[in-house]
């Protein structure tokens, strides 16, 4: 589903160039549940940015569902991301001014979908995540776990093939974290490919494959050697 080839990302710091991702070669198959780990500054979020098509400044080759991302325009990438990717954030990033239902509807509102169809999809999602009773509440009226539940509901409402999560339980206590991770497992079992960034070893156990980054290099991949993925540290 995802193939990264010689991906590099660097920032200019004065006269020098600081690399945050170096020569990343990686393949992720459909249905994978990948955990990206590593110490702070290792390049985890940068990799997630690249995968989420939120970053345009990398070099290398990136193929998503057969689409050659590196050859796409900025607009093309945004359109591809809108169709295929869902994002879950550590601090939920729900919009305070919108109700639960409106927050979930937000990604759909940026697509040319008929209003009735959108309402039906939101209703289905509320039902699926068992938060129908909270649809008219504002984020400030929810607990952290409930907010993240809404964040995930918003991320999957348009049935993305790829779900990216950045420290999804970072702001939650352990019981809530366990519920959220269980939800990710269920989604993965239903066919959604998931890539999560986390520091938590426990969260990593919900996935099936672990990538480890250090100083921008991909230093470990628990995928079988003959699989479609490979690690080339140089």
């Amino acid at each position: 589903m995802i193939a990264l080839k010689q991906i590099e990302r660097s920032y200019k710091t004065g006269a020098a160039q600081t690399f945050v991702l170096r020569n990343i070669n990686l393949t992720i198959r459909e249905g994978d549940f990948v955990t990206v780990m590593g110490p702070s500054g290792a390049g985890k979020s940068s990799l997630l940015n690249v995968l989420a098509l939120l970053d345009d400044e990398w070099r290398g080759e990136y193929s998503l569902d057969g689409e050659q991302v590196h050859a796409l325009s900025r607009k093309g990438r945004a359109e591809l991301a809108r169709r295929r990717i869902g994002m879950v954030f550590q601090s939920y990033h729900l919009l305070d001014d919108l109700t639960v239902a409106e927050n979930i509807d937000l990604p759909l509102s940026y697509k040319n979908l008929p209003r009735a169809e959108r309402q039906a999809m939101v209703a289905d999602t509320l039902d699926r995540f068992q938060i129908v009773g909270k649809k008219d509440l504002y984020p400030s009226q929810l607990s952290g776990g409930q907010q993240q539940l809404v964040g995930i509901a918003r991320a999957v409402i348009h049935s993305p093939a790829l779900l990216l999560a950045d420290e999804p339980t970072g702001n939650l206590h352990s019981a809530q974290a366990a519920e959220i991770m269980q939800l990710f497992r269920t989604l993965n079992e239903q066919g959604t490919t998931i890539v999560q960034v986390t520091h938590s070893e426990l969260n990593a156990t919900y996935g099936r494959r672990i990538l480890e980054l250090r100083d921008g290099w991909l230093t470990r991949d628990t995928a079988p050697a003959q699989g479609a993925s490979g690690v080339h540290a140089s």
């Binding site: 939120l54 945004a78 994002m87 954030f89 990033h93 919009l95 937000l106 990604p107 940026y110």
Partner: peptide, 16 residues
């Protein structure tokens, strides 16, 4: 700013 970033991340175009 962060709200706009979230919107952009969720698919809002610049014109929107």
């Amino acid at each position: 700013r962060s709200e706009m970033a979230v919107r952009a991340c969720l698919g809002a175009s610049r014109s929107e």
